[in-house]
Design a binder for these strands. Sequence first.
DNA 1: TTGAAAGCGTTACCAA
DNA 2: TTGGTAACGCTTTCAA
Lengths: 344, 344
Amino acid sequence: MVATIRDVARLANVSVSTTSRALNGRDDVSPEVRQRVLEAAGALKYTANLHARALKGATARTIGVLVADTSAFSFNAPLLSGIYDAATPRGYAVIVCNASASPTAVRDAHDMFVEKRVDGLLLNSVRDGPGPLLALQAAGIPFVLLNRHIDEPECDSIALDYRRGTYLAARHLLERGHRRILHQLGSRDHPPSQDRFPGYRDALHEFDVPFDPGLVLFCDTMAEVHQHVREAFERTPRPTAVMAYNDENALPILLALRELDLRVPEDVAVVGHNNLAIAQYLDPPLTSVAHAVRDMARQATELLFEKIAWPAQQEAWTPRNVSYQPRLVVRQSSGTAALLTRSA
Amino acid sequence: MVATIRDVARLANVSVSTTSRALNGRDDVSPEVRQRVLEAAGALKYTANLHARALKGATARTIGVLVADTSAFSFNAPLLSGIYDAATPRGYAVIVCNASASPTAVRDAHDMFVEKRVDGLLLNSVRDGPGPLLALQAAGIPFVLLNRHIDEPECDSIALDYRRGTYLAARHLLERGHRRILHQLGSRDHPPSQDRFPGYRDALHEFDVPFDPGLVLFCDTMAEVHQHVREAFERTPRPTAVMAYNDENALPILLALRELDLRVPEDVAVVGHNNLAIAQYLDPPLTSVAHAVRDMARQATELLFEKIAWPAQQEAWTPRNVSYQPRLVVRQSSGTAALLTRSA
DNA sequence: TTGAAAGCGTTACCAA
DNA sequence: TTGGTAACGCTTTCAA
């Protein structure tokens, strides 16, 4: 179907080895022969078979990405975008797998990555614990944890500091006088939800505000967000502020508040998370915690390449744990300066 | 670094060929030997090298995806998700490339896909014209155009019918009495923008409304959407309705209208596109054109697999062009039944 | 039931 | 400067 190097050699009337050297731009080939070989290759539309190259010891120039849940759109899209940005200019291809496709998806994906002899791996899921990671280490495949952390084995990780982001949001609200702050989270067993929660407690503790478990809501869908938040605001004493799990979830929250005739920010302050482009166009513009997802992914990919290129024989690699710091973007949904004065 | 089949054979004390047969579950191996081989493989954590297999004639079980622009988040995320959903259960890996990474990105990506001998290709970009497609056909790599179309060469394509979606939205507004409908689009040279526009003209024509070029706005960023739409509503005669390029863009539009104290839907009707989850939570809930992006991607992937499995030697393949029909989801932003009566 | 050998497409090593 | 040969890891004849 496709021409091989032998076809090219035959057409150019030289040996296969000379053809190989000519195609690879080596200098021990006469200009005239090189010319003939390149013409023949062009005529036959020859493209080297990467599998053969990989078998000879070259690498496949491919990295793998294991994503926790491909349906978490607004997170995964910039994540993958950052990875491509770093990988493509280096000539690396990216294979993406979905860890939540099936119960055995994580294992299947790891097996596939090893089969394909990828040069390295970015893991956004450690659902199956340290086992697969140890296997990777044994197989000599470098990897970096992407927005996940695990204590054993000690490995490289680059993560957004959700705890700190949540802390910043909560502190901001506490500073403005809020004491009953509703904390809306995603699924109970979802790592990003678990990462956020301690930041809320940190801030409460700092302001000597007792923790009320009734103010924490775990929601699996937008419809649940809407319903649970609405119910929470119908109870007394009413919360005076809400921290949304993310900016999308702020929308059903804002709807619930409209339905209850509660004004934002006069009656209730609202803070989002992730600072999507839409946040500034909401009514009122949404205060949100900005995380550099794309940058994080890019840097994780660059760290992975550093690791791939590391001469492990000569020097031991020291694992790194990079934490990306969030930034609170204050807009009107969390109150104005006037409000600040009033409640201070 | 990693065990080969010879290591396994040596440890199990059998030949390489027997080892291969045992590992591949062939039945001409004695149970006792098979057992020994599997144990040895387990002990050495043996994983077959896919490059060697591919070289022997097996396929790499990989498909490639060329995405037009990885930063178009809300479109690409469900697109890729649908592709994974179809590919992963079949044991296929997915390599994703970004066609807008560099001027040579399309060519580079095609070269890479051929080098890697992928089994098939999904193309969401035909930026470089028919040349690369002809090359693929010559190389015998099956491909399907994903939400793109090209006349020559004749090839398989699966696309969302943006023209029809835009027509439905415009007709809906015309039926409610609107005659000055602002049409906000994305970049002028962006195919999805070009696909939408004729639908607008179709509807105007059907209602005998003359086309006013001043009512079409091309915008590259959300900030531009906000600014251009605002300017358009400050001119007289004022439009009475807006069709947003997509739901995200509806947000800066709604903001511009709020700033001008124009009520939605009483003063201005607004229609979005893509029907994101957030549409129903906006204020007012946004009428939007729903497109089944994920389904389209899944079906495109399945069509690709059908093509990959096609016995081309025996029967000629007949190209198909599937058009995914949109659905208008009417919510309050385009007016109520009362309004309909009033303006009819 | 088992094993030896050939070959997939490529590159590297040596000789010529 | 060129070409023959071996080897990468695997599967598949074909013999034994």
